[in-house]
Amino acid sequence: MVKKISAASLVAALLSLLPAWAWAAGGAATDLVVVADTRALHGFNLYLAELYNQDMWMFATWAVVLTSVLGVGLGLLMDLIMSHVGLDLGKSAGHVEH
């Protein structure tokens, strides 16, 4: 039964996408351009917003690298803190997390 529901959920989720698809294909298309307002920004926010306005490729590369570094860095830091507290994560990590 769970299998059926899993398969049904996949199919139903896809079916629910179909009208979206048709809509997207049929409408009049004008690209929306976003300009980040840098005039009142400072520091890191200003840097990010200027990069966003100037060079999208660099911005995208930065986004991926910073997200990965922060994700890994924070995770390792928290592991360290938890092991200091005395709770061993290794024993409980018997499952997968997305």
């Binding site: 991926v64 997200t67 990965s68 922060l70 994700g71 890994v72 924070l74 995770g75 390792l76 592991d79 994560l89 990590a93 997968v96 997390e97 997305h98």
Partner: peptide
């Protein structure tokens, strides 16, 4: 993406 990096490493 950021969150999955660490979960992948951890597990």
């Amino acid at each position: 993406a950021g969150k999955s990096m660490i979960s992948t490493m951890r597990h």
